[in-house]
């Protein structure tokens, strides 16, 4: 308003893109995986579980750009179909912990006292067990499968969100605008969910992105251990697990699904970092 001298200004969208290279790159990676998953039936060169016994363990060629595996299945087709399951794992495996954790954290932070103490002790108990051991025991009890994996994720994963949100709420509830809301007679639910939570959310939204990476790797690890996705379904973790016996003869069966995991994880990380900048989480 009172700036002494305003000179030139580059077009806004170009300046935005230049500053947000990370966001654009991250979103582009995520979008291409989503597109790949949606278009799998049309894009994939063949059926992912079709076994061609005459074409076992073929190296990458024009007919099979990523080669074939020990059952003669096309690796490219399996990687493309695998995107469906792995994206599902990343999204569902994050959404439920996020919702539960956010709710618990808000209530604990806002009410304090014994409510807070109770939830914090539960969190301590969950955190006292090694993450993977807890996951494995829950899945073993429920029986292997993706459904069990999601339930285990929801039961274990919410603690980080609860702690993140609670810490934010504790700070926010002493701020003047929260006191003002109280003095104006707003209901507790309104103060919690309309005034405090939206202001506390930025940090956990960023965490969602990096958490998606962890969940993805967890899903792959669980499937690798034979407790998640069951063969012959195409999932990247399962593919790596199945092919490990052939790693010296046929590197392509493990390399390409592995690369897919890394690339998707990278996409999530980039988006998360860019969101952190955009939402001013570091400030």
């Amino acid at each position: 308003m009172t700036a002494p001298a305003l000179s030139r200004r580059a077009p806004r969208w170009r300046a935005f893109l230049r500053r947000r290279t990370m966001l654009v790159a991250g979103l582009a990676i995520l979008a291409s995986f989503v597109l790949l998953a949606l278009l799998a039936p049309w894009v994939a060169p063949s059926d992912p579980i079709f076994q061609d016994t005459t074409a076992k363990l073929l190296p990458p060629s024009l007919a099979h750009p990523m080669g074939t595996d020990n059952f003669g299945r096309d690796v490219l087709a399996r990687v493309i179909w695998g995107a469906r399951i792995d994206l599902q794992i990343a999204v569902i495996g994050v959404v439920f912990p996020f919702l539960i954790g956010t709710g618990v954290g808000t209530v604990a932070g806002f009410f304090g006292g014994w409510v807070d103490a109770l939830f914090m002790r539960i969190i301590d108990v969950v955190l006292a067990f090694p993450f993977l051991v807890l996951m494995l025991s829950i899945i073993t009890i429920l029986g292997p499968g993706l459904g069990s994996f999601y339930i285990a994720m929801a039961l274990v994963g919410w603690v980080s969100y609860a702690r993140l949100i609670r810490a934010q709420i504790l700070v926010l509830k002493t701020q003047d605008f929260a006191v003002a809301a109280q003095s104006l007679g707003f209901s507790r639910a309104r103060i919690m969910f309309r005034h405090l939570l939206p202001n506390a959310l930025a940090g956990s939204l960023v965490f969602v992105m990096s958490d998606a990476v962890l969940v993805l790797l967890n899903g792959a690890a669980i499937s690798y251990l034979g407790l998640g996705v069951q063969p012959p379904l195409a999932e990247w973790g399962v593919m790596v697990a199945e092919a490990q016996g052939f790693i010296t003869q046929a590197w392509w069966i493990t390399l390409f699904p592995g690369l897919a995991i890394v690339t998707l994880a990278f996409g999530f990380s980039l988006t998360g970092d860019a969101l952190a900048d955009l939402l001013g989480v570091h400030e």
Partner: peptide, 10 residues
């Protein structure tokens, strides 16, 4: 900064 220029002290 990024295409913006302002004179703060004159």
């Amino acid at each position: 900064d990024a295409g913006e220029e302002r004179e703060l002290l004159q």
